[in-house]
Design a protein around this nucleic acid. Structure first.
Lengths: 244, 244
DNA sequence: GCCGATTATTAGGATAGACTAAGTTTCAGT
DNA sequence: ACTGAAACTTAGTCTATCCTAATAATCGGC
C-alpha cells in the first residue's frame, strides 16, 4: 500500500495525507508492539518524547482514522492500514540510512537523525531510486531488514549478545540505530553486522561481559550487550548455555 | 548564516526553528521582490496558493521575528536575517534538484516538487555532502545559480527570449523550474541552458516567435518565450534590437 | 478631488498537535 | 477485598497555520 504524498492542487504549502506526527506515532506503535501486538501509551510517549496525555489524544485520532485499534487503558494495535503505513515509513527510513552511508559517506552513527527528518519528505519514487542505486539492499547499515513493497515482512528476533553463555559464539546481526554514542563505540570495537564474537566471560550479578572480537578481548557493559543482536554460531570449548 | 535544524533534546517530534511554512514564505518573498525590493501580499499569496488573509497574518508574524520589514498596505521586504534564511532554503532546493538529476536520474521537469518537500528536511550537512559529490556546482539543472555559504549573491537578470529581435542570437541561460509541462516541452525542443538559439521571426500583435535551435526551426508562444532567459550573443544578419 | 475597483487587513473560526493539571482506572501487595 | 502507586484519560490551554466574511485603505480615472 503506497501512500499519496502529493496532491494539493496548485498549492505549494501542502498538507501531507499522513502527517509527520502520524507517521512517527505509527512507527513508534509498530516498534513498541513487540509483545502481544499492543503498544502501551507510556511506551509510545517514551519513544516519541511527548507526554502521555498527548499520546492518548493521538491514539484516539488514529483510531478514528482506522489506523489502529485502540482500547482505553489497554493499548494500541495497528490495523492492516496502520501497519502498512508504518512499514512504508520504516522502508523510507532504512533506505535513506543506507543511501546516506553508502553514497554520501555518512558515518553509521549519524544517519538516524537525518533519516528521521527525511523520511517524512521523501516520495516513494525517491526512495525507490535510492534503493535501485544501492542494488535493492535487504538490510540497512545497522542490520535492520528493509521492508519491500510486498505484504509479508517480519523482523527476526535475534537473541541479544547478553543472552549468550560463556564459550558461545555468534555473528552480530543487528545493532541499535538510535544512539550515536553506542554506535560510535560499537564501531570502534568492530561490532558491526557480520562480525564474529565469542563470549569469554560473564561477571556475576549482571556484571560486564567479556567478549572476543577478532583477536582482541573487550569488556562490555551488560546494557550494551542487551542491544546487540546476534545469531548463535557453533559453541566454543565450554558448552555452558544460558536461556532467558 | 546557517540555521539550526536540529535540537529538541530527546524529542523525536521536533519543532524546526524556521518552520516549513516560514521557509516557504521567505522564499516567496525573495522571489516576489524582484522590483523595488518589496513583495506585495497578493504576490506572495499567489505564489504560495494561500489566501491573502493568511499572508497578512504571516507577514505580521515574520515581522515580529525580525525576518522582514513589513508596512501595512505596502508590502514586505526581507531583512538581513530573512534574506539569509531565504537563500539558505534556496541553496538547499537547488542543490537537491541538481543531485536528483545528476545522481538519481530524475528528469528536469520532475525535480522541483520533490525538492520542494526535501528542502525543509535536509540538513546543511546533507546538502553540503551532496554539493561536494557534485563538485560544488554553481547552477542547478534549470540554470538557476546556487547560493554559496558566503554573503554576496546576486541572480543575474537575463533578458527573456521574447525580448530578442528578429535576427538576434542568444544562449539559453535559465528556464523556469516550476512547470513540468513547460520543462518537458523545452526539453523536447533542446532549449536547455547552454543551447544556442536564433530568432527567425516575430509574429505581430505579441504573436508567436519563430526560433532556430540547432538546425530546426520552431514556433513558440510568446508566453513561453517570456519565461526562457537568454544571454545575447553576436547578432545575426538583420540587427534589429528591442529594448524593454 | 471623488468613486468604484482592487488590494489588504481584521475578525472570527477551524484543525493539528503539544502541554499541564486534575481526575480515573488498573494492578500489585497485603 | 482494600489501598496506594502507577498508568492512563479528560479537561482546558496554547501555538501555528489555514480559512471565509466583513471592513478598510489605496489607486487609477475622470
Amino acid at each position: 500500500m503506497q501512500h499519496t504524498r502529493a496532491p494539493a492542487p496548485g498549492a505549494f504549502l501542502e498538507k501531507r495525507v499522513p502527517t509527520p506526527a502520524v507517521e512517527d506515532y505509527l512507527k513508534a506503535i509498530y516498534k513498541a508492539s513487540r509483545g502481544d501486538g499492543a503498544a502501551s501509551t507510556s511506551a509510545v510517549a517514551d519513544a516519541l518524547g511527548v507526554s502521555a496525555a498527548s499520546v492518548s489524544g493521538m491514539l484516539r485520532r488514529l483510531s478514528e482514522r482506522g489506523l489502529i485499534e485502540y482500547e482505553r487503558y489497554y493499548g494500541a494495535r495497528l490495523t492492516g492500514d496502520g501497519r502498512a503505513a508504518a512499514l512504508d515509513t520504516i522502508r523510507r527510513h532504512r533506505i535513506l540510512e543506507s543511501f546516506l552511508v553508502e553514497v554520501l559517506g555518512y558515518s553509521w552513527d549519524s544517519v538516524h537523525e537525518e533519516a528521521e527528518r527525511l523520511e517524512h519528505a521523501a516520495s516513494e519514487e525517491l526512495v525507490d531510486r535510492m534503493a535501485a542505486a544501492l542494488g535493492d539492499p535487504e538490510e540497512d547499515p545497522h542490520g535492520a531488514p528493509i521492508p519491500g513493497t510486498g505484504v509479508e515482512f517480519r523482523e527476526r528476533a535475534w537473541p541479544a549478545l547478553a543472552e549468550l553463555g560463556v564459550g558461545e559464539r555468534g555473528v552480530v546481526r543487528r545493532v541499535p540505530d538510535e544512539s550515536p554514542e553506542a554506535l560510535r563505540y560499537l564501531g570502534e570495537l568492530g561490532l558491526r553486522p557480520g562480525a564474529r564474537v565469542t563470549v569469554i566471560d560473564r561477571a556475576p550479578m549482571d556484571g560486564p561481559i567479556t567478549v572476543r572480537v577478532g583477536v582482541t578481548e573487550r569488556v562490555l557493559g551488560r546494557e550494551l550487550c542487551g542491544f546487540v543482536r546476534v545469531e548463535r554460531a557453533g559453541a566454543g570449548a565450554r558448552g555452558e548455555v544460558e536461556h532467558v
